[in-house]
Amino acid sequence: MKLGLVIDLDVCVGCHGCAVSCKQWNTSGTTGPLTDYNPYGKDPSGVWFNRIRSYEVGDYPHNKTINFPMSCMHCEQADCVDVCPTGASYKRAEDGVVLVDQDKCMGCNYCSWACPYGARELDRASGTMKKCTLCIDRIYDERLDEYDRQPSCVITCPAHARHFGDFDDPNSNVSKLVRERGGYALMPELGYNPTNRYLPPRVTRPIPTNDVKKKSLISSVKEWVNQAVAR
């Protein structure tokens, strides 16, 4: 098995729901807590397994906003595991999930240096490295319904931008999505061979603008005054 995520950049709305739901589940999970520093102060910070960034792709008027969620890619060539001196970081042979044994980690940060995707964050309170577990304490829990045996971020996503499955099975939902939509890996040139795939935005018909009415004189004047007035 090669478990991982497919993230659909076409429909991600950048709501950070996945990150919040992940934090809620995992803070009381196997690698929890996900410590917050100064949570009610001026500069609240803390440990997160998901980070969502937004980019502008292309130049106006042919530009597009892309919301870009990132978590651990569960790489096949996981350098973070190879560089770990203590053996705290490991990649499970049976499903390819990369995990950190919190009892063995010495907090040297070396694995976070080896990760090109920023998946690992040090928890200053416990002094150990923490990262996405692919909700390992959930996906194998047979007391849960079949649907709930998925990572928290996948279930929560209101836009259905996240999919979970086995990439080794050519007929799994994730394999099909990657095949049909041209799913790609990030920074393939570094050779980490990440498992997670990103689906590019669909090529859609542009919204026609030639039927938009020309602006009237009065509205042009109003617009100019609006911009000229210093408030």
Binding site: T86, A88, K104, C105, M106, G107, C108, N109, L122, R124, S126, G127, T128
Partner: peptide
């Protein structure tokens, strides 16, 4: 620079 030197 270790955050958890007891495991060093």
């Amino acid at each position: 620079h270790l955050a958890n030197p007891k495991n060093a």
